[in-house]
Design a protein around this nucleic acid. Sequence first.
DNA 1: GATCTAAGTCACCACTCAGTGACACGGTAT
DNA 2: ATACCGTGTCACTGAGTGGTGACTTAGATC
Lengths: 204, 204
Amino acid sequence: MARDKEETKARILTAVGRLLAESGFKSLGVNAIAREAGVDKVLIYRYFEGLPRLLQCFAQEGGYWPTVDELVGDESTVNAETLADWMAYLLSRFSANLQERPMTQEILRWELLEGNELTRELANVRDKFALDSLNFLEDKGSFPPDKDIPAISAVLVAGVVYLMLRTKSSSTFMGIDFSSPAGWQRIQVALDSIVQLTVENNAK
Amino acid sequence: MARDKEETKARILTAVGRLLAESGFKSLGVNAIAREAGVDKVLIYRYFEGLPRLLQCFAQEGGYWPTVDELVGDESTVNAETLADWMAYLLSRFSANLQERPMTQEILRWELLEGNELTRELANVRDKFALDSLNFLEDKGSFPPDKDIPAISAVLVAGVVYLMLRTKSSSTFMGIDFSSPAGWQRIQVALDSIVQLTVENNAK
DNA sequence: GATCTAAGTCACCACTCAGTGACACGGTAT
DNA sequence: ATACCGTGTCACTGAGTGGTGACTTAGATC
């Protein structure tokens, strides 16, 4: 219709994003994408050689994951001194950021129950972000040798992610109601106290 | 073939379980269940009025979730005194138990990305188990008023669940390799230290 | 203006899925 | 024996999917 190959390719790619954010990866088929993009599906095969390559292109476009800098913001305005402070801050920012990225949430869901090439690639991108965060933290205050900071971070991040992914379908977990901000507030406080009490080298 | 209604119903129900544990809920359709059970699918409609009711029956059968007693085992042999000890013990047992319940894992995955009546019901069963665990813990040592034990538990349990669900499709998270027992060992240690340092009332 | 190619359209295939109606069989009560 | 009802079998529809070949059209080149 528009007779512009690049624009059509772009329309297809943005359609993937919209569809992913709105209805998740379950409905992410060739037909659905073509419909969403207002494009004939044969063009998907012509320009991307099918779904897998299309999704690969989409993944390489990036943008579904924040950078550490983006997460931290302006360091000079952050009220944090110790390693624990920074960890708590980063966790809280991570949580808030993830909440506003439905597409990223869907990708995380996807990783969780499909083990194909693409999700593995997406997982690599994510893990690189995680390692960046750890490096950032280690710059802020070197890790105490008697604590396994990466493992502790993994547990806490995993917890945040799981709670986040849950809230879409079910609003309560272990008696905590996540439909109101109060529930999340409790989690936030819990995370802060966990980090402070666990990471701070009070065993010294 | 067997001309026995109850047996046929039972075959269908066990087929649901097998299918769920083996291939997850993605392939959980009427046709697949009938094939797995070696039964004509029309009987599913006759005896269960379709998939939703069948799954509801399956859910009511139970057995996909442990009881607190089952998890704890013989209390007299448990080397735990403080509340923190019991929390750590319960977390570790929970993790081990969940690892050996593929069907339960699939249900957790399912809850995560489908918000229908059934998953909500399943979520209720799960949440009751969680509250039972909290009650058990409160019997062991009353919760310190300055700590939100449920929220802390929620974060840690959520973390364990997420890490568990991940390992099937991807084996690394935040640089930790979960394909070897060493990775899980690190998580276990991290959980223990988090619980001990966070829950123990060292602020008193 | 004719031609040629890239971009887009349409029609179709084979397959899977949920769901239904019609039929065959076998034991049971009359 | 026969009529009946519960159990199981078969064949089908209709919708939706991934994927492909044949066609049309717009726009640049000669």
